[in-house]
């Protein structure tokens, strides 16, 4: 039994959500999906440990959920859209999680986004035809 190798496995700092991750993270993502319902969110908030056990998470997955260890959750098969549903309980959004993955602050993360976009309006002018280029 082997998992296929892919070209995308070599992209650094990246966890493409494929069969291998979907398989190992199934219980974890299934629990996160249940948070679409408010009643389930309440039940989880009241006793997170018990809720994780009810959904059959591994010990490692359960601890990562309880401690809000987001990078670890990715390692353990959590899909990022489902991770967003878990991050809510730590008062965080996807951008905060993005910062947490690389151990920087949310402000630093936002600055990184701004830095990469610097000068985009000059580029629009070069391209031509852009509204408000």
């Amino acid at each position: 039994m082997v998992w296929n190798r892919h070209e995308y496995d070599d992209i650094p700092g990246t966890y493409v959500f494929d069969g291998k991750r979907a398989n190992s993270g199934y219980a974890l993502n299934r629990m996160a999906f249940s948070f679409n319902s408010e009643a389930n969110r309440k039940e989880f908030a009241a006793d997170m440990d018990a809720y994780c056990r009810k959904y059959g998470l591994s010990d490692e997955q359960r601890e990562a959920v309880l401690n809000g260890e987001f990078l670890k959750l990715l390692h353990l098969g959590c899909n990022v859209y489902y991770l967003a549903k878990i991050a809510v309980f730590h008062g965080l959004n996807v951008q905060d999680a993005g910062a947490a993955f690389q151990g920087i602050t949310a402000d630093q993360f936002r600055q990184k986004l701004l830095d990469q976009s610097t000068g985009f309006q000059d580029r629009l002018q070069q391209e031509g035809g852009y509204w408000h280029g």
Binding site: I11, P12, G13, T14, Y15, L71, L74, V80, Y81, L83, V94, A97, G98, A99, F101, Q102, F109, K112, L113, Q116, S117, G119, F120, R123, L124, E127
Partner: peptide, 21 residues
């Protein structure tokens, strides 16, 4: 955009504009 991993937060303006064109 990339939401996940240590590589989260990449934006590539040149690639975006090339795609649009």
């Amino acid at each position: 955009h990339q939401l996940q991993g240590e590589r989260a937060g990449i934006i590539d303006v040149d690639f975006d504009l090339k795609c649009i064109d």
